[in-house]
Write a protein that binds this DNA or RNA. Structure first.
Lengths: 243, 243
DNA sequence: TAGAAACTGTGTCCGTGGGATACAGAGTAC
DNA sequence: GTACTCTGTATCCCACGGACACAGTTTCTA
C-alpha cells in the first residue's frame, strides 16, 4: 500500500539514465521496457487497482520479487509506465500556425490519455517528469514562440491544454461504461427534483440524445484556443499602439 | 484494497437518502456527518493513502468494524467525504452577469479543491453525484441561461471550468511542497539538455522568479471566459443576421 | 585457469489494510 | 415481560507491498 514514498534519486536514474555498459553477473532476463509494457497492458484493462506486482510478474513469467531488481517499487513502476505510455510526441503538422499545432497537440495527448485511463490517476501527484513528458511540453512552448506570449504564459497554456485533454479523456473513458454517459445519470437524479435544479433540468431536456464523439473536447478546446487568440491579438495591437 | 467496487444502490441511499424515522435497537453513537468529517480531517493532512478505516475509527473512539454499520466500504466513505467537503455552493454574487458569476464560481470551487487535495483523486472515477455536487452544477447552468448557448454547451462549460479549477488546485497543492514549484524542477532537468528542449529552455529562462499567487488559474480562467465570450458574441451576431 | 566479485532470480517472512462473520448487549414493539 | 431488531465488538481471512537471505551465474582479475 506504500505507494506514496517515491525514491526520487532512483526514479531519475530510471527515467533519464542510460542503459550503461557491460556488467558482471548473469544477464537480466527482463528489460525495463518489457516490464513497463506488461504493466501498461494490465492497467489498461483493469486499472491501477488491478495492477499488482504479482500480476506483472506472472505475465512476464518471473517471480514478484524479481521485479524489484529493476524497479524500486510500485510507484516508480507506474512512473515508468506513464513515460512509456505517453511515448514520444508525434511530429507536428507541417505548415500549421500556432493554433493548428496546439489543436493537433491537444488531440494527440487526449488520445494517449484515453487509451490509458490510469494515466490520469498517475499524473495527480507531483512527480519527476521523464524525457518524453518534457518533449511533449517542448512542443507547446515551441508552437507559441514568437506569438508575443511570455515564457510563463506559454507554460500556463500547456497546463491549460493538457488539463483539458486529461479531464475530457476521463469523461470519455467513463462514457465507455455501460451507463451510457454522464448526462443519463444526471437526468435520472434530476427527475423528480426539478424544482431544486430548474436550470439543470432545462438544459438536460434540451439535449436530444447522447452526442456521439468527443464533443466536449472539441467545445472546450475551441473556447480555449479562441481565448488565446484574443490574448495574442490584443497584445499585438497594444504593442503596435505603443511603438 | 478493494476500493474499486462501489455499491451504487447503497451509495445513492447514502448521498440522497433521508434520515428516516424511529428505529428499533440501541441508538447509533455516530452520524454519517461525523464520520465524513473525521475522514476529511485525516485525508486533508495525510492524503487518501493515509486514510484508513482504522484511523477514522480511532479518531471517533470506535472499532473499525463499527464504521461498516454506517458505510458500506471505503469507496463509499470517500464519496460521502467528497460530498461533505464540497458542501453547498455559496450564494452567487449579486448583480453579476454570466461572466462574473462563472468567474466567482470557478474560484470558489478551486478553493474547495485546494483545501482538500484528495478530492482530485476522489473525482477521477465515474461516480454517483450527490446533492451538493448537482447544486454546484446547477449554478453554472443557471448562469448561462439566456446566453444563447444550448443545454449541451452549458454542460460543456461546466466540465471545462471545473476541470480547470481542479487541475490548478492540484498544481497549487503541489507547489506547497518544499520543492518550490514545478518550474524549478523543470529547470533542473532542462539544464544540460538545452539543445534537446530549446524552446522550453528559453521559456524557463524568461521566468524571473516563482510567481506568487494563483497566476496559472487566473490565466487559464481568463482565456476560457474570453473564449466563451467570443462564442456568445458570434452566436448573437449570427442570430441577429438571420432575423 | 582458478578464484573472487558482482549480479540475478527465488523462497520465505512480515506488516498493513479492507472486509466477512458470528456474537453479546441494548433498546423498542407487541 | 418477551421477542425482535439493531449496534458495536472480537476474531478471522486474504491480498498486497516490500525486506532479507540464499543459491546460481557470469565476468573480471590475479
Amino acid at each position: 500500500m506504500e505507494t506514496g514514498g517515491v525514491d526520487k534519486r532512483r526514479l531519475y536514474e530510471l527515467l533519464w539514465g542510460t542503459p550503461g555498459g557491460p556488467r558482471r553477473g548473469p544477464r537480466p532476463t527482463l528489460t525495463l521496457d518489457a516490464i513497463a509494457r506488461a504493466g501498461i497492458a494490465i492497467a489498461d484493462t483493469e486499472g491501477l487497482e488491478g495492477l499488482t506486482m504479482q500480476r506483472v510478474a506472472e505475465s512476464l513469467d518471473v517471480t514478484k520479487m524479481a521485479l524489484y531488481r529493476y524497479v524500486p517499487g510500485k510507484a516508480e513502476l507506474v512512473a515508468l509506465m506513464l513515460e512509456t505510455a505517453i511515448g514520444e510526441p508525434p511530429p507536428s503538422p507541417a505548415g500549421a500556425d500556432w493554433r493548428g499545432q496546439l489543436d493537433d497537440w491537444t488531440r494527440q495527448i487526449f488520445d494517449r490519455f484515453r487509451r490509458h485511463p490510469w494515466a490520469h490517476v498517475a499524473t495527480v501527484a507531483p512527480r519527476v517528469p521523464g524525457p518524453n513528458e518534457l518533449a511533449w511540453l517542448e512542443r507547446v512552448v515551441a508552437a507559441l514562440t514568437d506569438t508575443g506570449l511570455t515564457g510563463g504564459e506559454q507554460l500556463d497554456v500547456a497546463v491549460l491544454l493538457v488539463g483539458h485533454a486529461r479531464n475530457l479523456a476521463q469523461h470519455s473513458a467513463a462514457g465507455t461504461a455501460p451507463e451510457q454517459g454522464r448526462e443519463a445519470a444526471f437526468t435520472v437524479l434530476v427527475r423528480g427534483r426539478e424544482e431544486r435544479f430548474p436550470a439543470l433540468d432545462a438544459a438536460l431536456r434540451s439535449i436530444p440524445a447522447q452526442p456521439p464523439g468527443d464533443q466536449a473536447l472539441d467545445f472546450g478546446l475551441a473556447r480555449i484556443l479562441d481565448g488565446i487568440q484574443t490574448l495574442i491579438t490584443n497584445r499585438a495591437a497594444a504593442s503596435r499602439g505603443r511603438t
